[in-house]
């Protein structure tokens, strides 16, 4: 059993090298999610191979790599969404806040409350905007109308969509545009007050304008949440993230500060990928 103490905070912070325009986050930089020799299998197939990584709290970590390299699988392992796939199992260890995510006594429902997720395609429920946001809080026992309204407003404001929907909270969420729907999904996740936000290619189904809004939103949320974002778009990774992980065929090839990884990659494979020599 590995605990978070075995990975020193000092070593971890070395992965963050911030360019001058990005500020350091106060109270951030602790090991939040730690993988050690962590593998994920679909039946016999090893989709993620012995990954060891340290995700720092309140910073944005991007995961890049070609399709099928296991980056989404890795992301979905953190809040155990892979449990939906019956043949999926893991080895090694994955710690969240020092506790084993795949431990025998881990409550995956509690874990998912702390580790929120936004998916590739916007997936609001076929309910009103209010009910969408209130879904999580209600689930966790909040029933007071006034309190719910407060949470809904706060979450929508945080997700920078309040001004667009404040006058039609009772309308069906499916009537919103794709970009609005995705920000609504972010708001819905924020409403349960998670510590970690997992974004699985959140802009791949959106147009450039909506994408820009989501990226701005990530910048807003940086410093409040530990954010992990899987993306195919390397410009996006370099724009929004503090550190970047490059996956290739299930292997974590390189994990470094974004500024460093994109300008001075250590591994030749990373260099080939970010310069577009293969894909």
């Amino acid at each position: 059993m590995i605990t978070s103490e075995s990975v020193s905070t000092k070593k971890a912070t070395r992965d963050i090298y911030l360019p001058p325009e990005r500020k350091t986050v106060e109270g951030g930089g602790k090991s939040h999610v730690v993988a050690k020799d962590f593998s994920i299998y679909y039946g016999e197939f090893e989709a993620v191979k012995r990954v060891s990584a340290d995700i720092l709290s309140k910073y944005v970590t991007a995961i890049i790599g070609p399709s099928g390299c296991g980056k989404s699988t890795f992301l979905r392992a953190i809040n155990r969404m892979n449990d939906l796939i019956p043949s999926c199992h893991t080895s090694g260890s994955l710690l969240f806040d020092g506790e084993d995510v795949y431990g025998k006594y881990t409550d995956e429902v509690l874990l998912r409350k702390k580790v929120g997720m936004v998916f590739q395609k916007p997936n609001p429920f076929p309910k009103s905007i209010f009910d969408n946001i209130a879904y999580g809080p209600r689930l966790h026992g909040m029933s007071d109308k006034k309190k719910l309204m407060e949470v809904v407003e706060r979450s929508l404001r945080k997700a920078a969509i309040w001004d667009e929907v404040c006058d039609r909270l009772d309308k069906n969420a499916l009537g919103l545009s794709g970009g609005q729907q995705q920000r609504l999904c972010v708001a819905r996740t924020l409403a349960v007050e998670p510590e970690v936000l997992l974004l699985d290619e959140p802009t791949s189904a959106l147009d450039p304008k909506a994408t820009a809004k989501i990226e701005d939103l990530i910048q807003e949320l940086r410093g409040s949440y530990t954010i992990m974002i899987v993306t195919h778009n390397m410009q996006q990774a370099s724009r929004v993230s503090d550190s970047t992980m490059f996956f290739y065929e299930g292997v974590l090839v390189e994990h470094a500060a974004t500024a460093q990884l994109f300008t001075n990659p250590k591994d030749p494979m990373t260099e080939d990928y970010i310069t577009g020599r293969f894909s």
Partner: peptide, 15 residues
């Protein structure tokens, strides 16, 4: 029912 509804709900900490 789209699988995404299920994912969304579970990811919010629903049983």
């Amino acid at each position: 029912v789209p699988k995404t509804y299920r994912e969304a709900s579970l990811s919010l900490g629903s049983t």
